[in-house]
Amino acid sequence: VTLFVALYDYEARTEDDLSAHKGEKFQILNSSEGDWWEARSLTTGETGYIPSNYVAPV
């Protein structure tokens, strides 16, 4: 399991995006899409895309 933590708040801009709150942890499901990674929030269980530069490894 690849875990990352949000460094900043991010507000989803499309229905495919996933909002993130600073300190929230995510499981990365797919990081092969360049700057946008598919992730699952460990807080809400929701999945979507987050900007890779907004997260760091735990």
Rank of each mutant, 00 (worst) to 15 (best):
Trp36His: 08
Asp17Leu: 08
Val5Asn: 01
Val5Lys: 02
Glu15Met: 10
Leu42Glu: 10
Tyr54Ala: 14
Glu46Phe: 10
Leu7Met: 09
Ala6Gly: 02
Tyr54Leu: 15
Ser32Gly: 11
Gly34His: 10
Ile28Gly: 03
Thr14Met: 10
Asp35Leu: 11
Asp35Phe: 12
Val5Gly: 01
Gly34Thr: 12
Leu42Gly: 03
Phe4Val: 13
Ser31Asn: 12
Val1Asn: 12
Tyr10Lys: 00
Gly45Glu: 04
Glu33Cys: 15
Ile50Leu: 12
Glu15Leu: 10
Glu15Pro: 14
Ser41His: 04
Tyr54Arg: 07
Ser41Phe: 03
Val58Gly: 03
Glu15Ile: 10
Phe4Thr: 03
Ser52Phe: 08
Gln27Asp: 06
Thr14Tyr: 14
Pro51Leu: 07
Trp37Phe: 09
Ala20Met: 15
Tyr49Glu: 00
Thr2Phe: 11
Phe4Asp: 00
Thr47Arg: 10
Asn53Gly: 11
Arg13Leu: 10
Val1Ile: 13
Lys22Phe: 05
Trp36Gln: 07
Ser19Cys: 06
Leu29Val: 06
Leu29Gly: 03
Trp37Leu: 10
Ala39Cys: 09
Ser41Pro: 04
Glu11Arg: 08
Leu3Tyr: 12
Ser41Cys: 09
Pro51Asp: 05
Val55Ser: 00
Tyr10Ala: 02
Ala39Met: 14
Asn53His: 13
Leu18Ser: 01
Thr47Tyr: 08
Ser19Asp: 08
Asn30Arg: 06
Ser41Ala: 05
Glu11Trp: 09
Ser31Ala: 13
Glu46Cys: 14
Asp17Asn: 09
Asn53Phe: 11
Ala12Trp: 04
Glu24Lys: 00
Glu11Ser: 10
Gly34Ala: 14
Ser31Glu: 10
Thr14Lys: 13
Asp9Pro: 06
Ala20Arg: 00
Ile50Tyr: 01
Asp9Trp: 05
Ser41Glu: 04
Glu11Gln: 12
Lys22Asn: 04
Thr2Cys: 15
Tyr10His: 04
Thr44Gly: 02
Ala12Asn: 04
Leu42Asn: 05
Phe4Lys: 00
Ala12His: 04
Val58Phe: 13
Phe26Ser: 00
Val5Thr: 04
Arg40Ser: 06
Tyr8Leu: 08
Ser32Thr: 12
Ser52Gly: 07
Thr47Ala: 06
Leu18Asn: 01
Asp16Val: 12
Leu3Val: 14
Glu11Met: 10
Leu18Tyr: 03
Gln27Cys: 13
Glu15Tyr: 08
Trp36Thr: 07
Val1Cys: 15
Ala20Cys: 14
Ser52Arg: 11
Ala6Pro: 00
Ser31Thr: 13
Lys22Leu: 06
Asn53Ile: 11
Glu38Asn: 06
Tyr10Val: 06
Leu18Ile: 13
Ala12Gln: 06
Asp16Tyr: 15
Leu42Ile: 09
Tyr54Cys: 13
Asp16Asn: 15
Asp16Trp: 15
Gln27Arg: 06
Pro57Leu: 09
Pro57Phe: 06
Val58Ser: 07
Thr2Val: 13
Arg13Trp: 07
Ser32Pro: 10
Gly34Asp: 12
Ile50Thr: 02
Val55Leu: 15
Glu33Ser: 14
Leu42Cys: 15
